[in-house]
Amino acid sequence: MNPAKDTLAMSTTEVDLAPVQTGQSITVMWRGKPVFIRKRTAAEIEDAASVDMSVLVDKEADEARVQKPEWLVLVGICTHLGCVPVGQKPTDVKGEYNGWFCPCHGSHYDTSGRIRKGPAPKNLAVPPYEFISDTSIKIG
């Protein structure tokens, strides 16, 4: 009952990042899941990098979660029970840590996608991806 071969074949996605502005987020589909790609502002990067490790639930440094600091790539699925957190649109609620907020059971994620408050046990996952050029990535 594991994934069939054609399902596996659809398991990479290429994304052109050129049109994305600083402070803008886009959502793309990868393996049927939403992937959040955000071009972070300098303030957000600064926020994420300056957090003291000891207050984190799932201790990960910001630089370990990005390849280029301005590009944050995340699987947009709450690590609690799989809802899609809100925070992609400028008008969305972003939670107490200005990243994403999961409405299902109230998990708050920060500007590095790390869990800060609520029932989710882990940070938003970073999918495997690589830069195939300066302005495009391949996820998967």
């Binding site: 594991n2 994934p3 399902t7 398991s11 393996r31 899941k33």
Partner: peptide, 17 residues
Amino acid sequence: VTLLWGGFSVDNPTLNR
């Protein structure tokens, strides 16, 4: 979970089974 889904998320294989 992957086995239940037959994929990487709840999707067509899940609905079929």
